[in-house]
């Protein structure tokens, strides 16, 4: 009798577990995915710019570049709005006016940024695809007004094609 009891004991212990799945691997995978998406996702509002598509491009660090955003004015669809910096806030907007005054404003901003942040070694223009070439040229001319910008490379933001 005692032998039989010894044999039956492990059986009885295993039985309650059979109905439950082991969730540990699932949790592991979930955490991996979670960590991945946390790292990949950006909480910046900068994604609002519809950059033109291109198959090749360089990756440059956002923090190492002076960024200018060029978007079409939503109201008119004709004029452009230029924002100084990586966010499209009203206080970073280049005041509208004739091209010369905007160029001067952009040039001053770039000069200020480059002198206060010597580590920034590039200037990035994030222009929407629908913006006219002349407007991007205007921003480039503005950048060219900055003396420090002459030793920096100028980049145009694109979206990588799949």
């Amino acid at each position: 009798m005692s032998d039989e009891a010894n044999i039956e004991l492990p059986k009885r212990k295993r039985n309650p577990d059979e109905g439950e799945l082991d969730v540990t691997p699932m949790i592991d995978v979930t955490f991996l995915l979670l960590a991945f998406f946390v790292v990949v996702s950006r909480m910046d509002p900068q994604a609002a710019v519809a950059l033109p598509m291109a198959s090749y491009g360089d990756s440059i660090q956002d923090k190492e570049a002076v960024t200018l955003i060029v978007v079409l004015d939503e109201a008119t669809g004709e004029k452009v709005e230029v924002y100084k910096g990586r966010s499209m806030a009203d206080d970073t907007k280049v005041p509208p006016g004739d091209e010369d005054s905007q160029e001067t404003n952009i040039g001053e901003y770039v000069e200020n940024q480059l002198s206060s942040h010597p580590t920034k070694n590039a200037i990035l223009i994030k222009a929407e695809g629908d913006v006219k070439t002349g407007m991007v040229e205007m921003v480039k001319r503005g950048i060219a007004q900055s003396e420090l910008a002459k030793t920096r490379k100028i980049y145009v933001g694109i979206e990588a094609e799949q």
Binding site: I27, T30, F31, L33, L34, F37, V38, V40, S41, R42, A47, L51, A54, Y56, G57, D58, S59, I60, L124, E137, K140, R141, I143, A144, A149, K150, K153, I154, Y155, V156, G157, I158, E159, A160
Partner: peptide
């Protein structure tokens, strides 16, 4: 954890932003 996972999956944008080097304006 699942809630967070779903949130980040939905908000994640996979558009890779790169850049082209262009000559300065003349």
């Amino acid at each position: 954890t699942f809630l967070l996972l779903i949130f980040f999956m939905v908000t994640a944008s996979f558009t890779l932003q790169k850049s082209l080097e262009q000559p300065p304006a003349k």
